[in-house]
Design a protein around this nucleic acid. Sequence first.
DNA 1: CATGAATGAGAGTTCATTCAT
DNA 2: TATGAATGAACTCTCATTCAT
Lengths: 199, 199, 199, 199
Amino acid sequence: MESKTRIPKQKSATKKYDKIVKAGWELITEKGYVNTNTKEIAKKAGVSVGIIYQYFEDKHDILIVGLNKYGENIFFPLLKIKDDFKILDFSSFIKKFITEYIKTHKENKIAYEEIKSMVFTDKEVKKFFYSREIKLNEFLYKLLYNSGFNEENLKEKIHVIVGLIDNLCQEIVYHKHREMNYEQMAIIVINSIDKIIKE
Amino acid sequence: MESKTRIPKQKSATKKYDKIVKAGWELITEKGYVNTNTKEIAKKAGVSVGIIYQYFEDKHDILIVGLNKYGENIFFPLLKIKDDFKILDFSSFIKKFITEYIKTHKENKIAYEEIKSMVFTDKEVKKFFYSREIKLNEFLYKLLYNSGFNEENLKEKIHVIVGLIDNLCQEIVYHKHREMNYEQMAIIVINSIDKIIKE
Amino acid sequence: MESKTRIPKQKSATKKYDKIVKAGWELITEKGYVNTNTKEIAKKAGVSVGIIYQYFEDKHDILIVGLNKYGENIFFPLLKIKDDFKILDFSSFIKKFITEYIKTHKENKIAYEEIKSMVFTDKEVKKFFYSREIKLNEFLYKLLYNSGFNEENLKEKIHVIVGLIDNLCQEIVYHKHREMNYEQMAIIVINSIDKIIKE
Amino acid sequence: MESKTRIPKQKSATKKYDKIVKAGWELITEKGYVNTNTKEIAKKAGVSVGIIYQYFEDKHDILIVGLNKYGENIFFPLLKIKDDFKILDFSSFIKKFITEYIKTHKENKIAYEEIKSMVFTDKEVKKFFYSREIKLNEFLYKLLYNSGFNEENLKEKIHVIVGLIDNLCQEIVYHKHREMNYEQMAIIVINSIDKIIKE
DNA sequence: CATGAATGAGAGTTCATTCAT
DNA sequence: TATGAATGAACTCTCATTCAT
C-alpha cells in the first residue's frame, strides 16, 4: 500500500474519510493535481482543512488513496474478470475486452487524462500503473495459457496485443483523427491480434 | 502558431530570444515545467527576468515556443525524411524507422517524459502533438502510397502501425518489463506490420 | 497560586489531573513548551484531549501547575533542608550545598534549560523563580543568622554568594569552557564565599 | 558567520536589508521570536513579505543577522574597549566596567530578556553567546596579564569575576529584590573581585 | 465526566509578474 | 531596450481549543 493513511475506525469518520477521497479525486481528475488546493477539497467534501491532515499524510496522499480506490476500475477494468474464466471463442473475447475498455474509458475520460499525465512525474502514480500493468499481463497470460494457446513468446505477444488494444481504444474514445474509420481500424486490430496469438 | 510571442527583429534581440527559449526548454525538459522558475531560466539564459516578459507573454509561452522549436526533432524524427523518398524494401524501412525512433528517444528520455506529462494537461502541448501526429500519418500515407502499397484503409493501417512501433520502442527505451525478450517482441511487431500492410 | 486550575475533588479525577501534569511536565522539559502539543500530553497521560480543558484553563496552565509541583525540588533543592538546621562548619556546609546543587542540576539538565528559557518570556514562570529566590534568600538568612554569622549586609552577601555558587555549578554542569580547571575554580569560589561571610 | 544571507550590493538594497534586520530585531526583542511573524516584520520595515526571502534564508536568519549586528554592543559592551588598553587602577577599572555594563543593559532590558531566553533553545543563539563569552574572557585575560596581574589560575579567576559582575548588574538592572542595598552589594562584589585578583 | 473528531485562523514560504530605474 | 528588486496572492500544513456525542 502506497499511502501512509490511518484508515479511521468509526463509521462517521469513515464517511468523512471517503468524502475527502471522493472530493479530492474528483477535483484532481477534473482540474489536475497542482490546480487543486486543499481548501477546495475540504470545501467540496464539506469538512474543514484541518481534518484532512488527520486522515491523510498530505495532499499527495489523497491522490494516492483515490488512485488505489478508483484507479483499478477506471484504468484496468479487465482485472475485474474472474480468475477461472476460460476463453472459448477468442475473437468474441477480444471484442468484449475492447467494448468494456472503451466503455469505462469514455466514462472516465477526464480522470484518465489527468492521472496519466502524472505517470511521468509522480513516482507513486508510476508505481500504481506499473504494478497493474504487470498484473494485467500476468492475468492475460494465465487466461490464454489455460485456454490452450501456444505459450511461445506469450508474454511478448500479450504486451503487443495490449498495446494494440490500448491504441485502438484511445483513438476511439478521444476521437482525435476525425477522418478515420473506426470500424475498419477495429477490424485491422482484431485481425492482427488473431494472427499474433495463433502463430 | 500557438505562441503570442513577438519575435524580435534586431539580431542581438533574436540572440537573447533564442537563448531564453533554449534555457527554458532545457530546464523544463530536465526538471519539469512546474519545477522550473523564471529566475532560473533568466539566469541560465544570461538575461534578466524582466526581459523575458518583453519577448514572451508568460512562462508558458516559453514552453510552447521551445516545443515548436525542438519538439519535432525529438518527438517526430521521421518528419525529417524528404518528401520524395520511396520505399524499396518495406521490411528494412520499418527496421530503420524503429532504430531511428529508439535512438532519438533514448537521447531525449527525460524531455519525452516531462513533456508527454503535459499532453493531457496543457491544451497547446496537446495541439502540438496532435498536429504532428496528423503530419506524420499524412507523410506515411504519401510515402506508402507512392511506394505502391494498397491504399485500402491505408490511414487506419498506418495509425495501427505507428501505435505498434510506439509501443515497442517505449518498451525498449524505458525497459519496464525486465523479463521480456525485446528481440522476440520486435519480430512479433515487424511481422504484424508486414501482414497489416500487405493485406 | 498562579494557575486557574480547578483542582478536582474526586479521587479518580485527581489521578487524571496528576497524570496530565506529570505527562505535560515531562514532555515540556524534554522537548520545550512550543514543541509539545496537547495531543501528545493527552496521549502520554492516557486521557483524551478534551478532558485537559476541564482540568486546566489552557496548555500554559499545565506548565505552571507542573512548575509548582516539580520545580522547587529541581531548581531549589536546598529548600528541602529543615528550618531548625544549624551550621557548625561553614566550609563543609558550602561544599555540601554545592554538591547537592550540582547533583540535582545534572539530573535535570534538560528541564533546567527548557524552563529557564521561559523565565524571560513567561510572566508566571518568572514569578515562580522570583518567589523561590526570595524564599531561598530568606531561608539562608535565617540559617546564617541562627548560626551566629554577622548580620551586617547579610542579605546582600547572601545574594552575592548564591550568585557565585550558581555560576560555579552551571559551569561545572554544562561544562562550557573545556579548558578550565574546575577544582581550582571551586577553590576560588569557596574562598571568596568564606571571605564575604566572615568579613 | 552564522547567517546564510547574501548581503546586497546596491545602496537601496542595503537600506532595505538593514530596515528588515532592524524591524525584525526590534519586534523579536520586544515580543519574542515566536510571537513575531514575517508579515509584521515586512510591514514594520515598509517592505513586502516576498523581499524578505530574497535577502534572508528564512525568518530565523533575520534573528541571527540581527544578533550579529546588535548583539555584541548590547550583551558584550566591553568588547568595544581597545586591545592596547592597560589597567592602571584596578578598582576604578572594575567600577567603570560595571557602570558601562549597567548602562547598556538598562537601555536594552527587553532585548536582553527575549534573546537570552533563546540561548537554551536555539543552537545559533547559543553559539553567539558562547563565542562572545570566550572572546570576553580572552580579552580580559590579556588585559590583566598585560597589566601585570598574577597569571596563576587567571582564567578561572576571570570566569568567577565575570560571573560576580553579571550577577550584580542584573540585580541592579532588573531590581528584583527591592529590599536590597545595591551600594553595599556593589562594595561586596568589588571587594571580592579585588581579593580574587590580588591573591 | 469523558471522548477525540472537528475546527479554522494563522504560520512560513514561493514565484509569476510588474515596474522604477 | 534592459535590469533585478519588489510585490503579494496563494500555497500547504499545524495545533490550541471546542463541542457533539
